[in-house]
Design a protein around this nucleic acid. Sequence first.
DNA 1: GAGGCGATTGCCT
DNA 2: GGCAATCGCCTCT
Length: 236
Amino acid sequence: MSPALHELLSRPAPDVAPRLLGAVFVCARDTGTVALRLTEVEAYGGQQDADLPDPGAHTFRGRTARNASMFGPPAHLYVYFTYGLHHAVNFVCRPEGTGGGVLIRSGEVVLGEETATRRRLATRSSHPPFATLARGPGNVAQALGLTLDDDAAPLVDLGATPDPVARAREAVAEREGTVWSGLALAEHPAEDVRSTARTGVSGEGGTDAFPWRFALPGEPTVSPYRRATVKRRRTR
DNA sequence: GAGGCGATTGCCT
DNA sequence: GGCAATCGCCTCT
């Protein structure tokens, strides 16, 4: 892979995340190819020796079997399974070798709309509106066809171009018939980026102390903000 | 070895 | 706005 993406993802996640908005994330699978123009991401920091320990991150309590890939080389995927039914995907970052990542929260489907729709219909009773095909982390993973099998998979660097969508299309054609994931960066960073507290993160990590959710304003594909669910004791 | 609960989603009221 | 669904990681006993 060329050094550009690797160099970018070697930086701390909060620096990387806003730069990913507008980039195009391609996942080519046997079951179809889908590409997303990223509109919403969240940064998750490294462990104790990062500048700012991140209590909202999976890395916070150290390396485990589940989060091992987050401590691996940058420019790889970290896919995890949660709530017994959803997958979510991160790009692994590496601030000073402490682990970290950028959660892909939402994107606009720019390639493979039919495939994405078919995958999403597997768990829905109604046809998903276009803007919701990849809105929310669980929906992103489902639309792209990502599962735990894709954890630690490498991210192919498709370069930085003025037209990442076109670049993604070219790459899909070039690599027809193979299974791969890749990222085409936008040549220029998005000018208008909104940062807020992270969605669904409980405790201190979900407050304004960590304004590490980044989104493109005005995009219909950006997920609504939700607070972390309040813990309720099970009543037998 | 057991139990709590999560970087969520979609349907129901 | 409430809450069920559903599984496995992680913590504590």
